[in-house]
Design a protein around this nucleic acid. Structure first.
Length: 235
DNA sequence: AAGAGTTTCAACCGCAGTTCG
DNA sequence: ACGAACTGCGGTTGAAACTCT
């Protein structure tokens, strides 16, 4: 018999996939993505699962457009660090490197366009050409050196802070999760979760896992009303 | 109203660094 | 010490949403 390797799913995530992923991440933590991808039955790569979690499902994420303060900070930090998106993202709580990267791209494109427009109407005013200035100068041209008009930290202040604690720790996030646990339909009051320390969860092998994923382990009274459960999708 | 052009956002890819056996 | 597996990062792409003409 010929075994055909199943194609991994690609493209947009469905709501059901999201629910499953959230469930399994909460069960096993934000690590071992290949493992999570495998046991969840999502038929996605670990990489894809991680990306979806980090960029979309993570509980600490902000939604919607970036604020002027955030935009200002992005420009300023970019002038200091260049395309170190993840580093910049760490200074903007709730924003992902992907979001910041997207914003920067959109911003520079806009600037290039404005430049073209202005250079076609008048060939004199080069001061608007931020994309061709050194990034530091570009930030200054935006008036980013001092940030007294708003309450956000300047890049310099952040730089000083850099050695200290990250501005948004995982502890905060998990505290948030813990406090909202009761109202979350996704998180069954699973014996697996309750009886295992985080460390212990990481030590279980595949055989134990199969046992733990038996429906009677996962479906609790909590989910009796047909709510989402942490059973593999393709089971 | 509709089609073209632009912007935004989510997702993929490849590579490099790290961890683990 | 070494190789495989995993993880994170930055660049790029494409579809959907939005705006303009």
């Amino acid at each position: 018999m010929v075994m055909v390797k199943e194609e991994m799913r690609k493209g947009s995530w469905t709501e059901q996939e999201d629910l499953h992923l959230v469930c399994f991440v909460r069960l096993f933590g934000e690590r071992r993505w290949d493992f999570i991808a495998k046991v969840s039955g999502l038929n996605r790569t670990g990489k894809s699962c991680r990306l979806r979690w980090v960029n979309y499902l993570h509980p600490g994420l902000k939604r919607g457009r970036m604020t002027p303060q955030e935009k200002r900070l992005v420009l300023e930090l970019h002038s200091l660090w260049g395309n170190r998106w993840s580093r910049i993202a760490r200074k903007l709580p709730g924003r992902t490197d992907n979001e910041i990267k997207n914003y920067w791209r959109a911003h520079t494109r806009k600037m290039t366009k404005e430049r073209r427009r202005s250079s076609s109407s008048s060939r004199v005013d080069r001061s608007l050409d931020l994309t061709e200035l050194p990034v530091q100068a570009a930030a200054e041209a935006h008036g980013l050196k001092s940030c007294s008009a708003c309450s956000c930290l300047t890049a310099e202040e952040l730089e000083k802070e850099e050695e200290g604690v990250a501005s948004y720790s995982m502890d905060q996030i998990w505290n948030e999760i813990a406090t909202s646990e009761d109202s979350c339909p996704l998180m069954p009051s699973s014996p697996t979760w309750e009886c295992c320390s985080e460390e212990a969860v990481w030590k279980i092998d595949d055989e134990e896992l199969r046992m733990l994923l038996q429906p009677d382990h996962l479906i609790s009274d909590h989910n009796a009303g047909g709510r989402e459960t942490c059973t593999p999708m393709n089971s």
